[in-house]
Design a protein around this nucleic acid. Structure first.
Lengths: 237, 237
DNA sequence: AAGTTAGCATAACAACGTTACACAAAGAAT
DNA sequence: ATTCTTTGTGTAACGTTGTTATGCTAACTT
């Protein structure tokens, strides 16, 4: 009775699907979590609220799509960091890429890693696995740091997690507005990176050299292709 | 025309005010952010939704009250950590207190530090200052670490921020469910604390000793007065 | 060209925060 | 002790939210 698989009398329009995700992401980025509603999204896409349900099942489904999009965007940011013969400098630049991506998409970032439940959405174990996979770039970099003889600790996964935790903590408190003038976010990040790198066995002088090298590369690549050097400080005022 | 300051024909009942905060905190802790509504709170307090507005002005006001309550609760947790002649062990125990408090009140913690906007509430600068003040305990402890000669870095505020950022990052990812078996939260925290303490100048052997001492004290104080040793793992399943 | 199937618009539902309004209760004043 | 005034609180409403039931219509299959 069920071998009649007559399909697709009318296909879903992938264009409207992508448009919904884009509009939702823009609404979230520009006006925060409170502004994310099916009606506003539908109005901007000049369709009805039903489009959200036919394409994503519910509002949570749309949020999940945005989260996955956010992960791939972070992965692209990571991929833009070149692999040089100074793997520690590469690691520092990966941290800055993580931080910059988080600041540019602060609301989405809070849902991806901060555990913020948006519109009833909360991460499933699959989502988290998806997010963890993004960190293989960092693990690879840690492996290269170990192989270069800079680190004395030799568990790349654990080292990557240390970097992740520190950067994540910094970004979260920075976005929360907690890091101000005497000890602002930049100073905190420099000092905690410095401490952590020394802690895993690197030589203080080499750490300083790699941090200087990373700063130089960051300046250069900022002028090259990354962002148009405009206000990348996120949604702070 | 306005020098007639006739006051108080009917006082506010401070009992219902406290009851509303307690009920709201319990609803938030047990059923998450989605379950926090004026109607549910009013029903549990056997009053009307108007009570929320006369006592707190709005739902955000009630959330702000809970946030302040959360800060003082964290301060009390910090105060329970004894000051010994091993200030580094004290510092580690402060970190564990922060972490345990966050796990016991995960939803409230997300609002306090994670930047999660709950029911339209978001932190004001005063709230943040209130939160930063909670860290003076950690800054004092860092000062004692420096004075004892264990640390070579000598900016206690910056050191306290490093500890805060690392612990905050760990707790956030832990609550988000991101830290699992090969590198679970406990292992991550041990390694990042170890790295950070070495990074600020402490001797690796002394760090290991202080971490062992902190573990011993934590075991002892857990059996003494803290929590009833039950499921303190928060709302994870 | 006819049939079927699924996307989409409309409208409704329950629940939400918030507010206007009337009533009741309690201190102030006589 | 009684009246007045002020203010907390219950009721009901408004506009909004996510979600769903119901047709209609467009498009793919035969």
């Amino acid at each position: 009775m069920c071998n009649t698989v007559k399909v697709s009398p009318r296909k879903l329009d992938p264009g409207t699907r992508a448009a919904l995700v884009d509009i939702a992401a823009r609404l979230l980025a520009e006006h925060g979590a409170e502004a994310l509603s099916t009606r506003k999204i539908a109005a901007e896409a000049s369709t009805s609220t039903m489009a959200v349900y036919t394409h994503f099942g519910s509002m949570s489904g749309l949020v999940r799509e945005m989260v996955h999009e956010g992960f791939t965007r972070l992965e692209r940011q990571f991929a833009q960091v070149r692999r040089t013969d100074d793997p520690v400098a590469d690691m520092i630049l990966l941290g800055y890429a993580y931080r910059q991506n988080a600041k540019a998409n602060s609301h989405l970032y809070a849902v991806m890693f901060g555990g913020q439940s948006l519109a009833g959405f909360s991460l499933t174990e699959d989502d988290r696995q998806y997010g963890r996979y993004t960190l293989v770039t960092v693990v690879d970099c840690a492996t290269r740091c170990i192989e270069s003889g800079r680190f004395s600790q030799n568990d790349p996964l654990l080292i990557a997690h240390q970097m992740w935790i520190a950067t994540h903590g910094l970004v979260n408190l920075e976005l929360g507005g907690y890091l101000i003038d005497p000890v602002d976010a930049d100073r905190c990040y420099d000092s905690i990176l410095n401490g952590l790198l020394i802690g895993v066995g690197d030589d203080p002088a080499l750490v300083a050299a790699s941090m200087a090298a990373s700063t130089k590369r960051r300046r250069r690549e900022a002028g090259a292709d990354s962002e148009p050097a405009g206000a990348v400080t996120g949604t702070r005022r």
